[in-house]
Design a protein around this nucleic acid. Structure first.
Lengths: 407, 407
DNA sequence: GGCATATTGTTCGCGCGCCGAACAATATGC
DNA sequence: GCATATTGTTCGGCGCGCGAACAATATGCC
């Protein structure tokens, strides 16, 4: 039951029906490939006649192609259809405090190359260096493949519409128009997004339909806690394009000071930094970027902490479990607010899922308002898959498959 | 950029374009009435020819009617079109702890009759009594008018799909199938909704477009704090139809016990009960329903507290301001998460808006992540308008105007 | 009053697109 | 070689948006 916005709507023209059905067909092929025209018609509940025309148009637009013929027990053998993704490329960039991740992949999310290097904080130098690396990376590809854009993911507040980094404390960037700078240096379209929302986009657009669903929250625990909300198959961006910041909801108004300036934010209790601080007895309120740099040099991470917990370090285990408890309490609040189909969890701490699951679950039960809500599925996504980079790629690939705007 | 759900979509048939445009026309007429066919065509950017046919169909379906002819400086005088709402009626029921509110109104939300009486907690007695009152109320209306359904609003968790009250602590109802009971007693379609979400529906469907917008959060402060989230013109209901419960997000995990069983919920800091408890020095954790009944008998409400604050009672003023501060802190969190176009505020405490606005605003600045977010418009809705009852009516009226499902 | 002008609302041919049915193409089994 | 089954294409029918022409109805100026 959606209300029509009478100040900003699209009427249906005589080509609208075709536009809608062509786009549906593309998506059904994408998720069911390889698939024949006849199967497509059955799945869409349309006649083969119409589907034949839709397929012809999609082939002419070079969005799909015909593959091998399949097997059939009787009758004419079907011609399989595939979505053209192999030769449509996207560059993904994930800028983080210590390292910058650069990936080349195709429109299905298949990884074609990756580079990880120290982050350069000076914006002009960063841009110049990045453009050089991208150029080199694209040269290695065949001549048939075309790069259709660059997706950039930043840890902080981003206005996705203007491509400006509003405030990324970890990088020290404030009001930086990173989009136009990279676009000018590479001559490619650039999209910028916040890391939590990017992960949600990756989950929505680049994972199998069974694991993605249409309404979920993605929670990524790293130095901070990034989150993205997807409702009815659409990422929530909000009025200023800054929606989805569950990381800074309070667990305690008088709690430890967070990097955002407020006190007692969720991420000040359950982020990697918070977990380490708990173990080492640091005062998180007094932790400066300098301390963080120091820590990275010592390179003792949450993964090391988990290893210690596994070898019998009870102090390590209890530090991790404490984070798990706060994680669960935050998840309960998210579920009470959004009531999603599922919550996706990513980050190093998920490697200790066997150690903390029970703690997380019982914390969730504490604060969820109904039993059904407490049973909301939690889905762990392996950290090795570079969710942020996949999200950056999704920024470029998604418009090809998105539903047309109607009414 | 919405993703198409390939397991649950609607293809466009040869009547889809017409369906879409007819529904758009209905909404444009609704918000622009009285309006001529020619104006409608200009606003929809269609030819007058098509609009003429759309209007003809809407008239045949008895959704609109032709009114008087308007004035024009030159040329043929336009025929004004109106949406037919006067003779389409809805019954609205708002069940609260002390009183039950019963209203009869038309599809534009115009109030035709109202009854307020003591709530009967026994479900069979409540149903029987309600059916009797509704029957009487409808008798008073002319024979042309038709009641198209009953909207019921309950303070607590409701599964809107099944019509079951999952848990309404204020009424002592748990797992009560109120919908089928009322439907059987009245022989009318019944829709049940949670009070916070109902208010959001009222704001979306029954207020002028300028004040409603397409993405907002509605916050209703009463004995508890009810909230409803509207994104892109659609109420967020969630997997179990329990979404939108901002009232039970924590401000302090070790804070005072809330009626929901958890500690330190937002509503335990800023609800009317919390405000009164702060003034009288009660321990909210030990407040039972019996205490509440007692309190209602003494009938000292937040409105009385506001009156005392205005006459120089500094203790009263500081109790109200403290609630205002917590209100602002919670609003900041909502804004960080949803980043809505606006937040609507309702409840007795808004009558003291001149006393608390500054406090609320400065609390918001404390916890919002960007300056733009801190400037999110707050819109006060007068309590006299019975937002919950209007929401109950919206449950019945909205399906007539909602966008058709496509793709 | 008569005529030019302007605006509203209707009608109609055209082309696009879904629908159903017929038909061509291509395979298997007896 | 022929019946049967399945895939994929073609075609007439009809719904619908689009543009243009036309009818209806008002005003202003002579």
């Amino acid at each position: 039951m959606r209300k029509i916005n009478t100040t900003n709507f699209s009427i249906a023209t005589r080509t609208t029906s075709r536009d809608i059905n062509r786009r549906i067909a593309l998506n059904v092929i994408r998720e069911g490939q390889p698939i024949s025209r006849a199967d497509l018609a059955r799945h869409m509940k349309m006649t083969r006649g119409v589907v034949s025309v839709l397929v012809q148009e999609l082939i002419e637009q070079e969005l799909i192609y015909e593959g091998a013929t399949g097997e059939a027990a009787r009758g004419r053998k079907p011609t399989f259809l595939h979505v053209r993704t192999q030769d449509r490329l996207a560059v993904a960039v994930d800028i983080r405090f210590t390292k910058t991740y650069l990936m080349l992949c195709d429109f299905s999310g298949r990884q074609l190359g990756i580079e990880i290097y120290d982050t350069v904080f000076s914006v002009p130098e960063f841009t110049k260096d990045l453009a050089r690396r991208i150029k080199k990376m694209l040269k290695g590809q065949g001549p048939g493949a075309v790069c259709e854009g660059i997706g950039v993911v930043v840890p902080g507040m981003v206005d996705q519409r203007t491509g400006k980094v509003l405030n990324a404390p970890a990088l020290g960037w404030r009001g930086v128009d990173i989009r136009s700078k990279i676009a000018a240096a590479t001559n490619l379209p650039v999209h910028v997004e916040n890391s939590g929302r990017a992960c949600a986009l990756a989950q929505l657009w680049l994972e199998k339909a069974e694991t993605a669903g249409q309404s979920f929250v993605y929670v990524s625990v790293s130095d901070g806690v990034g989150t993205g909300i997807v409702m009815n198959g659409e990422l929530i961006r909000g009025r200023d394009h800054i929606a989805g910041e569950f990381g800074h909801m309070p667990l305690d108004l008088n709690g430890p000071r967070c990097m955002c300036g407020a006190n007692g934010c969720w991420e000040a209790y359950t982020s990697n930094l918070a977990t380490l601080a708990r173990y080492f007895g640091w005062n998180l309120s007094q932790l400066s970027p300098k301390h963080m740099k120091e820590m990275e040099k010592n390179s003792f991470t949450v993964l090391d902490l988990i290893a210690r917990a596994r070898t019998g370090d009870t102090k390590a285990l209890s530090a991790i479990r404490a984070s798990g408890r706060f994680l669960g309490l935050g998840l309960a609040t998210i579920i009470n607010i959004i009531n999603p189909d599922a919550v996706y969890l990513a980050g190093e701490i998920t490697n200790s899922w066997d150690l903390i699951e029970e703690t997380v679950r019982s914390a969730m039960v504490e604060r969820t308002l109904t039993e059904a809500a407490a049973r909301t599925p939690l889905r762990i996504t392996p950290a090795q898959e570079y969710p942020r980079l996949r999200g950056a790629a999704a920024l470029i690939a998604a418009p090809t498959f998105a539903a047309p705007r109607v009414a």
